[in-house]
Design a protein around this nucleic acid. Structure first.
Lengths: 143, 143
DNA sequence: TCATATATTTAGAATAAGTCTAAAGTGAGA
DNA sequence: TCTCACTTTAGACTTATTCTAAATATATGA
């Protein structure tokens, strides 16, 4: 089969990404990674499962979703986001960034580091800051 | 000042605090509020239950701990703190402040607002920031 | 290639945090 | 005192997640 669609290969493939992080790119992992890479919705494990389970050339169980999310997290491919009690959300944007929760819509928007980059230096000598996470709550203009 | 201070209620009592927030000060609620007010450990519901259940002149069920924590949260007496997946911690320091998680010990330390107060202004016109929470990870000097 | 080892996926059981339910207890006011 | 509304309680239930053990798939070596 030689009918390759060149347009779809403009961004690095999920498969390449997994390989580069030392994660064996099984069909299930690739499909979950692809979904996370193309969404901005910060989905939960359950949302990943139902989004991916439909248009899927491969079976996918709940346990595999959790296994894969943990594997991808440990490999540094995705990050956990804690915005509300009792559920973990996932974000394939692994750059150091922050989040803005729109309290009207519940939508979670990424906020780039450069908006808040001075924070890590604010604590002076008493603390050695490895990292930090800013969680904003408010309203997005036009949201 | 006398050498022997008989006045044990130097800080406003938990009972007064609950009354001032419109929460009926039942024995269970008072005892839970007292515990939260005197600790800096940011306990979970389960930690509240086991800490309070022992030296207690009153019975206390798990459901009451959850009921009370939710009641106190809704009344603005305490705040939730989300630092790790799958568990909610509680903080009786309701001033706007932030948290520092010591990655060696797991201890959570309060960080006052004035250390980071400029953050809310960093997002410019695109966002209306109602509030924000900074979660630091690192090491406390001498921790 | 085949055999075998290793890793992955799976369904469903198990666990843990938290909520719900319905009955019993408590207490303020008529 | 009686009553009504509120609170507490035990335990059932729910939900998110992890665990287990068997089945599959993949990789390796002869």
């Amino acid at each position: 089969m030689t009918a390759h669609n060149h347009i779809t290969e403009q961004i690095p493939s999920a498969e390449q990404l997994l390989l580069s992080r030392g994660v064996k790119p099984t069909p299930q992992r690739v499909v979950i990674a692809e979904y996370l890479l193309q969404t901005e919705s910060h989905p939960t494990a359950d949302e990943v499962l139902s989004a991916v389970a439909q248009a899927l050339p491969v079976s996918l169980s709940r346990a595999t979703v959790y296994n894969t999310l943990n594997t991808l997290k440990e490999a540094g491919v995705i990050k956990e986001v804690l915005t509300e009690p009792g559920r973990v959300r996932y974000d394939a944007n692994i750059s150091h960034h922050h989040h803005f929760v729109d309290v009207k819509t519940g939508k979670i928007v990424d906020i780039p580091l450069n908006k808040v980059e001075a924070i890590g230096k604010l604590l002076g000598d008493q603390y050695k800051v490895h990292g930090f996470q800013v969680l904003f709550y408010g309203e997005v203009e036009g949201g």
